[in-house]
Design a protein around this nucleic acid. Structure first.
Lengths: 187, 187
DNA sequence: ATGATTATTTGATATAGATCAAAAGCAATC
DNA sequence: GATTGCTTTTGATCTATATCAAATAATCAT
């Protein structure tokens, strides 16, 4: 539970009361490697805070999986649009490794937003950081060679990139597996 | 001033008091076409709400301008990272047309966040929408042809795309001017 | 362990889009 | 309204990466 509180504390000051409310509203859960955790056919009603393992956000295009985000220890994973706006989205979530997570339901999240304005601030600030990362990613997708893209990926995911299968990295970067394999070979 | 209040009202309920605080804290300003509004060498301390005209967020790479965002009527433009985290960023802002804007300073924005929790909520929700647009943009940059990218651009910027010079569109999409010109010709 | 899947590497070829170069269109300025 | 400086178009190559195909290597289940 500690890592979760530390996560919030990066952005806001946590009152004892808020700490209790948070810890009282999440529950532990584990998933086996390969398990489908969220199905694109459903509204996403849970957010997963990873204590151990890696979860992946992906969608299917022309029968192939396209990976869009990898969450590891200390990060939240969910289907953002589905979760925020309660609309169906095309994202699936699965476990790339055995995972231990803390689950927070949308209902509980809404409760926290409604009763603790500092939670709104937390959300604003943490989204701000992700926003910036998105801009860097967009920059990296334009005007750069496949090699530059891979290097940017390794930088962003520096502590977990060796744990992610090559094919998934390739689809994340918008290049083919074969090209990525060749890039890796030449280093 | 009305469009600005309508903008906020899309996301939160505006009390009379908040309305007054907002209108009292912005000031009108105009910029001539081509003017540099924000310089990458400085911290961005103002956010611009556009009432008329188009503003552009761009940076310079290898001596060339790379456009990253176009803001039109009813939208905010600023250098997000510089503004949010008070760090230097590489973004410039200029005016693609004569512009009429409302200016809100960071100091006033912070005041509003500190005194009106619903402003934090506004920020969270509006960033959420932009977040989603970013995800779509990332998708459009991967696995798609130059033509698909241009079509996605026209969709996202459907009411202003004819007002944006071709070269800027090309750098926004990460393709060359020449390629974009050829794509336009074949339609 | 052993065979069966699944993931990665390697090779040969094709192609979308980049690059280089120059002409044609437009728009601003005196 | 001609002159100057941008912007867009058109044309001829070139190249990074995709695609297709098959061989290894790694992982999983019995």
């Amino acid at each position: 539970m500690i890592p979760l509180l530390q996560h919030f504390a990066q952005y806001i000051k946590l009152s004892d009361q808020l700490k209790e409310e948070i810890t009282g509203r999440v529950k532990e859960q584990t998933f086996k490697k390969g398990m489908l955790i969220h199905d694109a056919g459903k509204i996403c009603t849970q957010s997963y805070f990873i204590q151990k393992g890696i979860m992946r956000l992906y969608f299917v295009k022309d029968g192939k999986e396209v990976s869009d985000y990898f969450g590891a220890e200390g990060e939240w994973v969910n289907s953002p649009r589905s979760m925020m706006f309660r609309k169906l989205d095309h994202y699936y979530i699965d476990a790339l490794e055995d995972c231990e997570v803390l689950v927070l339901s949308v209902a509980n999240l809404v409760y926290l937003f409604d009763h603790f304005p500092e939670m709104e601030r937390y959300a604003r600030l943490s989204m701000g950081s992700m926003f910036y990362q998105f801009m860097e990613r967009v920059t990296s997708l334009r005007f750069t060679t496949a090699k530059d893209k891979y290097e940017h990926f390794c930088q962003v995911y520096h502590d977990i990139y060796p744990r992610i299968p090559l094919g998934m990295v390739a689809s994340y970067l918008g290049i083919t597996q074969e090209t990525l394999s060749r890039i890796r070979a030449q280093k």
